[in-house]
C-alpha cells in the first residue's frame, strides 16, 4: 500500500509535467497538422533558462521562495515563447505549403540545432537545481508522507491546465484557435487571421513546455542537455494516447502516461521504464491510433 500511494502521487506529478509538454504538441498539430519535433528541445531550453535564472541571478536565497518561483516561471515562459516564435519564423514559415517530408526534416534539423546549442552554452554534464528552493517538508496523505514538492508540481500543472482550458474555451482568441483547428479555410472566410493563430499557438505551446522544463528541474533536482529528446517522445506518446489535436485529451493522456510509467517502474522493472513507455506508444498506434478521446481531425493515420 505504501508503494502504491507513493507511486500514485509520483505518477500524478510526473503525468502533470508530461501533460504540459503534450499540450504544445497537440495545439500545434491541431492547427498545422504537423508534429513539432523541436518541441522537446524547447522544453529542455526552458529547464536551462530556469537554471540560469535561479542560480546565476542568485534568485533563490535573495528573494522569498514564492517570489523566486513566480519570477522564474514568468521569465522562463516569456523566453520559451520567444524561442517558439523564432522556431516558427525560421524553420516552418519559409516552407510555406511544401510537402510533409520537408516540414518533418526541417523540424528535425531545428531540434538538432537547439539540442547542440544548449550543449555548447551550458555544457554536456548534468546541472543541479538549487535544492533549497522549496522547504523539505512532507504532507500527510492516506497515511503516507508525501513530499511537498510533489504536491506543488501537481498543483501547478493543474492550475496551468485550468487556465489554458479557460483561454481556449472562454476567450475570442481561444475560439479562433478552435475554429482554425477544425477548418482553416472556413476560419479564414470568417475573418480569422490564421497566421496570427499559428503564431499564438507557437507562443503558448513552448511557454507551457518551458515551464514544464523548470518543473522537471525542481522535481528531480538535475537537468541534462539531451533530456528534451526523451521527454519529447514521452509527451508525444501522451498526446497520441489522448488523441492528437485534442486539448483535453493531451491532459488526460499525460496523467495516464505518468501513472503507467510510475506503476510500471515500481511493479515491473525500473530499468525498463522508458521501454514501457515506447511500447505503449506502439500499442496505441496499432490498436487505436485516434487515441482515447479521438483525434480532432478525421484523417486516416
Amino acid at each position: 500500500m505504501e508503494v502504491f500511494i507513493q507511486q500514485l502521487t509520483n505518477g500524478l506529478a510526473v503525468g502533470g509535467i508530461y501533460a504540459l509538454i503534450a499540450l504544445g504538441y497537440t495545439m500545434v498539430y491541431g492547427i498545422m497538422k504537423l508534429i513539432n519535433f523541436a518541441h522537446g528541445e524547447l522544453f529542455a531550453l526552458g529547464a536551462y533558462l530556469g537554471f540560469t535564472v535561479l542560480v546565476s541571478f542568485g534568485l533563490s536565497g535573495n528573494v522569498g521562495t514564492g517570489a523566486a518561483i513566480l519570477i522564474t516561471g514568468a521569465l522562463v515562459m516569456g523566453f520559451s515563447a520567444l524561442a517558439g516564435y523564432l522556431l516558427e519564423f525560421a524553420a516552418y514559415r519559409p516552407l510555406g505549403e511544401s510537402d510533409r517530408l520537408s516540414a518533418v526534416v526541417s523540424a528535425l534539423g531545428a531540434s538538432i540545432f537547439f539540442q547542440n546549442a544548449i550543449m555548447l552554452v551550458w555544457g554536456a554534464r548534468y546541472r543541479a537545481y538549487p535544492a533549497d528552493l522549496l522547504p523539505n517538508v512532507t504532507l500527510g496523505f492516506a497515511g503516507q508522507d508525501i513530499p511537498l514538492i510533489r504536491a506543488a508540481v501537481l498543483a501547478a500543472s493543474v492550475v496551468i491546465m485550468l487556465l489554458l482550458y479557460f483561454f481556449i474555451n472562454r476567450t475570442r482568441m481561444g475560439m479562433a484557435i478552435r475554429a482554425s483547428a477544425i477548418d482553416q479555410g472556413a476560419a479564414k472566410l470568417m475573418g480569422i487571421d490564421v497566421r496570427r493563430v499559428i503564431v499564438i499557438v507557437f507562443l503558448v505551446g513552448p511557454a507551457l513546455g518551458g515551464l514544464a522544463g523548470v518543473m522537471v528541474g525542481v522535481y528531480y533536482g538535475q537537468i541534462n542537455f539531451n533530456m528534451g529528446q526523451l521527454y519529447g517522445l514521452k509527451a508525444f506518446t501522451a498526446a497520441i494516447i489522448g488523441g492528437i489535436g485534442n486539448i483535453p485529451g493531451a491532459m488526460i493522456g499525460g496523467i495516464l502516461l505518468g501513472l503507467v510509467e510510475a506503476f510500471g517502474a515500481a511493479y515491473l522493472s525500473l530499468a525498463w521504464r522508458d521501454a514501457i513507455t515506447f511500447c505503449v506508444l506502439i500499442v496505441i498506434l496499432v490498436v487505436r491510433p485516434t487515441g482515447i478521446l479521438r483525434e480532432r481531425v478525421a484523417e486516416k493515420l
Binding site: 516552407l95 526534416v105 526541417s106 531540434s111 538538432i112 540545432f113 547542440n116 546549442a117 555548447l120
Partner: peptide, 15 residues
C-alpha cells in the same frame, strides 16, 4: 559544433 552546423544545414536545405 558539427551537429549544430548540420542541424542548421538541414533547415536551410529544406527551405
Amino acid at each position: 559544433a558539427r551537429m549544430l552546423v548540420f542541424g542548421a544545414a538541414l533547415v536551410m536545405m529544406m527551405i
